[in-house]
């Protein structure tokens, strides 16, 4: 087996950012951009006596998914919790700009081929958001990434790939929400304020961050899938995320637009209905919402393996 084939069978959760990036695209097609040997390290961390990393915790590159150029951004959670600073953020922005320029070139030179060959952006999130050591630069990076995602709207699908151990929290939770499509595994999480921060601010009675079952049924993939906050739930392997990315790359842009959870009048109306529903149910636990959506036995879904869960779970679909 080649290195790439071995990667396919690996757990996405347990892989490094670079392994994920290499494995998501076609075999041998990944080219890293601004890789570790270029040594673009954070200018802020050495001032604070904090360890640096040659890629600043973000892997960026380009590969192929069939005929589609795939621009990959992959965050590394083991380096300062995947927190986004100035350099890592700039790499994200640069990758998104590259997607835009590839699209514009294709559109100008070969408009008939746009559907068959348009680029796709895959962002593998593993982060708590802004890197506090370089707060202003980190915040600015978040805003610039959001700007670029808006520039790609209706042109290039931007896909959140969330299968990491840390998941996607803080400012990057907003960024993930702003993408067109969200793909998760049940072992990963999405949220704004992380569980520990909620407990610290509001007390343990409000949210017990040491209760892993509670954390995962509030922020985990299964909950996000039922609530329609994520579009696709896949098993925890690099191959499974890759297969989903291939399927998304083949969709027409209208279908991609329908997968969005926010950003249009109809999406806002759906969100408002959900708010009304939540007010009516006044849930004390995620399970209350699962039940209100039509899942008679929520505990059974929590315990179910991937196949059984997918067969049984009733959900609110993002697409109207």
């Amino acid at each position: 087996m080649s290195k790439w084939q071995t990667l396919q069978t690996r757990s996405f959760l347990e892989s490094t950012a670079r392994q994920r990036a290499q494995g998501l695209v076609d075999e041998g097609s990944f080219t890293e951009l601004v890789g570790p040997t270029e040594r673009f390290i954070s200018p802020h961390l050495p001032e604070l006596g904090e360890a640096v990393e040659f890629d600043d915790g973000v892997v960026t590159g380009i590969g192929l998914l069939g005929k589609h150029p795939a621009i990959v951004i992959s965050q590394e959670g083991r380096f300062i919790g995947g927190a986004v600073g100035e350099v890592g953020g700039a790499k994200m922005v640069g990758a998104l700009k590259l997607a835009q320029s590839i699209y514009e070139k294709l559109q100008a030179e070969n408009p008939a081929e746009v559907q068959a060959r348009r680029p796709i952006v895959l962002i593998s999130f593993e982060t708590g958001g802004v890197r506090l050591h370089e707060a202003n630069a980190g915040l600015l990076a978040h805003a610039e990434v959001m700007d670029q995602i808006q520039n790609l709207r209706h042109k290039v699908p931007v896909v959140s790939v969330v299968g990491s151990k840390i998941g996607c929290f803080g400012g990057m939770g907003f960024v993930a929400a702003a993408t067109d499509v969200i793909v998760m595994s049940e072992f990963s999480r999405i949220g704004l304020t992380g569980p520990e921060v909620i407990e610290q601010e509001m007390g343990r009675a409000e949210f017990d961050a040491s209760d892993r079952a509670l954390v995962f049924r509030t922020t985990g993939g299964k909950h996000k899938y039922i609530m329609g906050d994520c579009n696709y739930l896949v098993p925890d392997s690099i191959a499974a995320f890759r297969q989903q990315a291939i399927a998304i790359a083949a969709l027409p842009m209208d279908a991609i637009e329908n997968l969005r959870r926010i950003g249009s009048r109809s999406a806002i109306e759906r969100q408002m209905q959900l708010v009304a529903m939540a007010a009516e149910v006044s849930p004390t636990d995620a399970k209350d919402m699962w039940k209100a959506i039509g899942n008679e036995n929520p505990q059974q879904l929590i315990d179910a393996n991937y196949t059984d869960f997918m067969a049984q779970a009733k959900r609110l679909t993002p697409a109207a």
Partner: peptide, 18 residues
């Protein structure tokens, strides 16, 4: 020409040999 390995996690390191 060069090889890179590792992640600068807590209690960990990365290396480039070139």
């Amino acid at each position: 020409p060069a090889v890179h390995f590792g992640v600068v996690g807590s209690g960990d390191m990365e290396v480039i040999i070139e």
